[in-house]
Amino acid sequence: MIEVRHINKSFDDKQILHDISATFYDGKTNLIIGQSGSGKTVLMKSIVGLVTPEEGEILYDGRDIMKMNLRDRKMIRKEIGMLFQGSALFDSETVLGNVMFPLKMFSDMTPAEQLERAHFCIERVNLKGADDKYPSEISGGMQKRVAIARAIALNPKYLFCDEPNSGLDPKTSILIDELLSDITREYNITTIINTHDMNSVLGIGENIIFVNKGHNGWTGTKDDIFDSDNQALNDFVFATDLFQRVKQYVKSTRAK
């Protein structure tokens, strides 16, 4: 479980995060949603430790990352997997090389064990047969799956995903969402997904934090979202005509 308490962060004179508190649970897909520029990426980068907030606490199962020294921070990063918006695969390595990378750097496994683990992760994301391909030779959806395989290679306790569906078609997006959801439950990972894809919100949103202008605007689940009176949330989630109709349909079905 990751707890964020009273986080404040500014860049130059502009305050981006205002006293944000939130809890992210084990075995659940925790979503951070919000408009572009609302501060959700800064919040995620603060939690991961790529950005240092001015105030607040970030607790990884009770361990405050902001009070850790460099050595402890390095240790906790071995418990973290991260999926970047652009996949961030190493261009010079093959699919297998990318998945093997964290194992080579941080595990005490023998080369044979590393290979076995890497193959297991590649098969887990349904990418069998792509071992020797380079990132530039595979599609965006496949790159995302390789990035997921790399992120789970070391059996992380915490998995961070920054807009995992960006640039993908709706069908592939659903596959990636399902994969993330399955992995989260299977290995009891605390998964935090930064997204503004409404299909993801309504599909896998087990714990949703809505960031609005740097504040925690709303917290709930995908089912609560239809009953919320929060104007900012409704304007954001049900911005399109299609989603407004979906909301009306769900509400009318529930009334019956």
Binding site: V48, L50, R73, K74, M75, R77, K78, I80, M82, F84, Q85, G86, A88, L89, F90, D91, F101, P102, M105, F106, F160
Partner: peptide, 17 residues
């Protein structure tokens, strides 16, 4: 520079490298 803008360096840092 390309590794920086495509977040590959961030990925290394996140891993603790």
């Amino acid at each position: 520079g390309t590794m920086r803008v495509t977040e590959q360096i961030d990925a290394l840092e996140i891993m603790g490298v």
